[in-house]
Amino acid sequence: MDIDVFNSRLSPQYRIMLKEELDQLLSKYNIVIKDLPKIKVNDPAVKLLDAKEGDVLEIKRSSKTAGQYNYYRLVVK
């Protein structure tokens, strides 16, 4: 049974980042791509977005204290 995880009210918003956005992010934190938090390719959200290994997802999470909080995860094997 396949469930559309994006339909759940508990699911945050996912988006594959563009190359320019990614470069900006990496320079903002002065890091290399491997320093980003990871997400597995077999994660339901990654499958639905059809993201590939090496893509970076922008995840918009709602936060009790900060309103909205953006998280960035690198798709890995």
Partner: peptide, 21 residues
């Protein structure tokens, strides 16, 4: 210093406690 939480150079949270407070 940029309020990110890190393990070595790797990022764990982009802002400490999501709000940096």
């Amino acid at each position: 210093d940029d309020l990110s939480v890190r393990l070595g150079s790797a990022i764990v949270q982009f802002k400490y406690g999501e709000d940096g407070l």
